[in-house]
């Protein structure tokens, strides 16, 4: 009986430690995050996001981002412009309430990391690559999107004055789950 107990205990310890390792990769988004977009006109922020983040710098194959931004939380600093952005001509927040990013691959780069994945905005899916860093339990990254690629607004009339390329700056503090 004693001979049996030792391998069982060993297997139990190994199994539990494996779970512990997986758990240490899971992060929850904490307050203080910032999703800002900048262009000549307009600039602003999205104030609400949520999602699942699994990230281990030493095990990028097992890392994954699945995050979502609430379109209705857009704030450009101007109420009329917010309503216009949420309206049918641009994000159409009633029909497409979220902007999502689901990663498919993570890579290490000289300056940090890079994630490839699918950005879904306004019902349009595009593969994009986002460079990012991870330091002090905070993810930070910047990339650009062309709103016309996602059918957000058009290039006619007054919409032509809205910048096509927007720089997105993301800073997301996290805590271990």
């Amino acid at each position: 009986m004693k001979k049996l107990l030792v391998p069982i205990a060993f297997a139990a310890v190994m199994t539990l430690s494996a779970f512990a390792a997986v758990n240490s990769m899971d992060w929850r988004i904490v307050d203080g995050y910032n999703i800002a977009f900048t262009s000549k006109d307009p600039s602003g922020v999205f104030k609400t996001m949520h999602g699942d983040i699994s990230f281990d710098p030493n095990n990028l194959d097992a890392s994954k981002f699945n995050v979502s931004v609430d379109v209705n939380s857009i704030n450009t600093g101007n109420g009329m412009r917010n309503n216009k952005a949420k309206g049918e001509k641009f994000f159409d927040a009633d029909k497409y309430p979220n902007i999502t990013f689901v990663s498919t691959k993570m890579m290490k780069t000289p300056s940090g990391f890079e994630t490839k994945g699918t950005l879904t905005m306004h019902g349009v899916q595009k593969e994009i690559t986002i460079p990012f860093t991870f330091a002090n339990n905070t993810f930070a990254g910047s990339f650009s999107v062309n709103r016309l690629d996602y059918g957000v607004g058009d290039d006619k009339g007054m919409s032509a004055h809205v910048s096509k390329d927007l720089r997105i700056d993301i800073s997301v503090p996290v805590a271990k789950k």
Binding site: A36, K47, N75, T76, G77, N78, G79, M80, R81, N83
Partner: peptide, 17 residues
């Protein structure tokens, strides 16, 4: 007031006018 751009840290800019 309709054309004023507030800092993005200010919530509910639509209530500013």
């Amino acid at each position: 007031p309709f054309a004023t751009n507030l800092p993005v840290t200010v919530s509910n800019p639509e209530l500013f006018p």
